[in-house]
Design a protein around this nucleic acid. Sequence first.
DNA 1: GCCAACGTTGGC
DNA 2: GCCAACGTTGGC
Length: 160
Amino acid sequence: MAKRGMKLWLMKSEPDVYSINDLRRDGTEHWEGVRNYQARNFMRDMAEGDLALFYHSNAKPPGVAGICRIVREAYPDPTQFDRKSEYYDPKSKKDDPRWSMVDVEFVEKFAEEVSLQTLKDEPALEEMRVTQKGSRLSVQPVEKKHFKKVLKMANAQTNL
DNA sequence: GCCAACGTTGGC
DNA sequence: GCCAACGTTGGC
């Protein structure tokens, strides 16, 4: 059931890097490596218990693969200080970390992914951010009506 | 691999 | 503060 004031999100991951199957295996994971200020700011707005659509980007086809839940609110992403990490940011200072991450846990993998094309073909999702041209943002808020629609299209077990 | 649609950087 | 050059994202 939906908690009062719960916010809803969409989070993109390239399945070659980290997929919904990886999250199912791991249970929980750090959502590290976000290096875009807008996406970071959205992560900072997340609260424990919020739900997110797990979106496979750069996939064939791209689409929503399942659901995850925020289990830890934003805190500094340690990879920004790790010289060996591909996410290393030499400009970020220890006493003023630039980048944040959240922790997520696996909720559900859809029996069938809902492809981006399917989302685009659904008139009710016309205004959803991810269906819009040039939507590159890797973390984005989702309106409740859109989230519910996607759950329905996916025959999801999760409901709001 | 191409390229549109951004976002960031840095010279001025 | 402007803006050109450059880098990244991500669908196709």
